[in-house]
């Protein structure tokens, strides 16, 4: 097996499956770790060997989040599992008061972030989760771009003293990283260098689209920088201010509504610290009940390589026209 094949073997599955394997490893090494499940399916078998570090609380997410706060206050390190919407939206208040408010080491590991639930429909989509979680005090919000980052994000979450919201997708997505990645909570990864414009992306397809957009723009003579903002909170303000100063224009990309997500967060920083033109690519502020897979839905929502490139060119035109 070549090194590339071995890498694919390790990280080729869905990020959520990679994280399950990582969690089992963390649990085996740290008896404080307890996997809190809400009938998501599969975790019960995975933890068959560690029954004292597994609990299934049933289909009851509000109770699960508060229970996890109780577990954490009593000294354990709960990793709770559900779909993003069922944590961020349904159990929002439990996260606010019991987890974030108390700054307890609860790790909320969610799947089906953004539109990754695809054909499951809008009940299972989570395009407002980042905005909601970003308002929570003490809460670290992680949105890894692939299975490599997800694995590192989960390990990093285990080390953090406070609460974490770790947002994963559903199906496998192509790998962003073909080798080791220098993942650090709160520090953006600069995936491509350039000084004409900065694309800031968060989440699997937004980052993958960003990579393609950089290549497309290179063909048009535009050298774009690409920041993978895997930590939405605390936001890497330094990287954003540097981008604003050095490239003078920013395009944000996310699989999330335009209200309050990454784009909003970037605008807050840039407006206060180094104003520059910004364009936001994301899901429109409308209830999306169309049917399709994740990529189809993203494209339909206006999140695509072409739209990113067009936004960049329009921005540069704006700047050139000054």
């Amino acid at each position: 097996m070549t090194a590339t094949q071995a890498w694919e073997e390790t990280y080729g599955g869905a990020a959520r499956d990679v994280c399950r394997r990582t969690l089992l490893e963390l649990a085996a090494a740290d008896p404080r770790v307890i996997c809190v499940d809400s009938d998501t399916g599969g975790l019960e078998d995975l933890f068959a060997e560690l029954p004292r570090q597994y609990v299934n609380v049933g289909i009851a997410e509000a109770n699960m989040i508060s229970m996890a706060a109780g577990l954490a206050a009593a000294g354990l390190r709960p990793f709770v599992h559900t779909l993003s919407s069922f944590a961020a939206a349904r159990a929002c208040e439990q996260i606010k008061i019991d987890v974030a408010g108390n700054n307890l080491p609860v790790r909320i590991v969610v799947t089906h972030g953004g539109l990754s639930a695809g054909h499951y429909g809008p009940t299972h989509h989570a395009v407002e989760d980042v905005a909601l979680m970003r308002t929570m005090p003490n809460l670290t919000v992680l949105v890894p771009a692939d299975a490599v980052e997800a694995d590192l994000a989960l390990r990093a979450a285990h080390e953090l003293a406070g609460p974490v919201f770790l947002r994963l997708g559903r199906a496998p997505t192509p790998l962003v990283h073909r080798g080791p990645c220098d993942f650090e909570v709160g520090r953006a990864l600069r995936l491509r260098d350039g000084d004409d414009v900065t694309i800031v992306a968060t989440g699997p397809y937004p980052v993958l689209m960003g990579i393609e957009a950089v290549e497309l723009l290179a063909g048009r003579g535009v050298r774009a920088r690409l920041l993978d903002m895997h930590t939405v909170k605390p936001l890497d303000r330094g990287a954003l201010v540097q981008a604003a100063r050095e490239t003078g224009a920013i395009v944000t990309v996310e699989d999330h509504v335009l209200v309050g997500g990454l784009g909003g967060a970037v605008c807050e920083v840039v407006a206060e610290e180094h104003p520059c033109p910004v364009r936001r690519i994301g899901v429109p502020d409308a209830y999306n009940d169309r049917v399709g897979d994740e990529l189809h839905l993203l494209n339909e929502a206006g999140v695509s390589v072409e739209r990113i490139a067009a936004a960049v060119l329009e921005l540069l035109g704006v700047r050139a026209g000054r």
């Binding site: 008896p31 570090q53 609990v55 229970m67 354990l76 108390n102």
Partner: peptide, 28 residues
């Protein structure tokens, strides 16, 4: 005060978490 309260319906869940932690080995 181990947990701030006021929003009703949280306390039993919090206590259930503590009770489970005790069962799973904590000296509680």
């Amino acid at each position: 005060v181990d947990f701030p309260t006021g929003s009703l319906g949280h306390g039993l869940s919090l206590a259930t978490g503590v009770a489970l932690a005790a069962k799973r080995g904590g000296r509680l």
